[in-house]
Amino acid sequence: MALVDKHFEDSAGVGISEATAADFVALLKPRVMSLVVFTAFVGMVVAPVAVNPFLMVVAIGAIAIGAGASGALNMWYDADIDALMARTASRPIPAGRLAANDALAFGVVLSVLAVMTLGLLLNWLAAAMLAFTIFFYAVIYTIWLKRWTPQNIVIGGAAGAFPPMIGWTAATGSIGLESIVLFLIIFLWTPPHFWALALFKQGDYGRAGVPMLPNVAGEAATRRQIFVYSLLLAVSGILPTVLGYNSLWYGIAAALLGIGFIGYAWQVLRMPDGDAGMKPAKALFGYSLLYLFAIFALILLDKLVLRMAGGLLA
């Protein structure tokens, strides 16, 4: 069986496109891009090598455009199931504003430009990691895993976890344990975040035939797995202090945020089967967004304070 064995009918027809620039921007998943920009920025700033500010902006831009391009490729391939889910039905392709093949061309061209820019202006190891991330998200996750296994977002989550690591590598030209810790935090954060969403969007995923964990293994198994990943996430959050990259103050704040995460996950664990409101799952989803932002902001702030203190003592 070929990996690409289907074709979403171009609802925009073979005529002249009425797509605007805003439709192409929507293909880049701007909200996901904003998270990529932030985490890549943190990765670059905490790296032990200072980068020219202009090159830093270019690197973060290239990483964000690369991530956006993989989003466009995802929307190209998933247009058929996006049309079936309320959350995604208004995306440019299922809504008929943009032809699927235009999205494919847009995604491929931007991917190449982003990788080449990062390679030419920063370094080729970072560029290779960006290329791998785009391939991982578009092919391994979107085309292969997403419709095949309920562990789709566990493995696919790696794609979202790479940006801070790429930022760190763009600055240093190498891969370090510190950047792997940043990767690990996002990697372990992804399952409870998306499974909380999957719990209260079960109907959507079921209609589209996407084998998300609640649809395949049931709500109880999902709630247990959310709790286990939340424990692992809380531990990974304090690793920067344990490994000596951040201060004890960061460690205490991260531990408190982690306990909060476990608290929300505990409420989800105690939620009865078939809970109509799904309030605990919605609360965990909201808190997970806040948690990731807070952890990365704290890592950044703490590092800057440590450097300033180091500079004053020197």
């Binding site: 002249i16 496109s17 009425e18 797509a19 605007t20 620039a21 192409f24 020219n52 202009f54 090159l55 270019v58 831009g61 430009l113 820019t117 202006l121």
Partner: peptide, 27 residues
């Protein structure tokens, strides 16, 4: 729509040129 896309593409190309011009000076 075509005019809108053309302007956006023109601006994107201009930004790309400026990025490589300044980056060359920086490097």
């Amino acid at each position: 729509a075509r005019r809108n896309r053309s302007i956006a593409l023109g601006l994107a190309l201009a930004v790309f040129v400026v990025i490589f011009y300044v980056a060359t000076l920086v490097k």
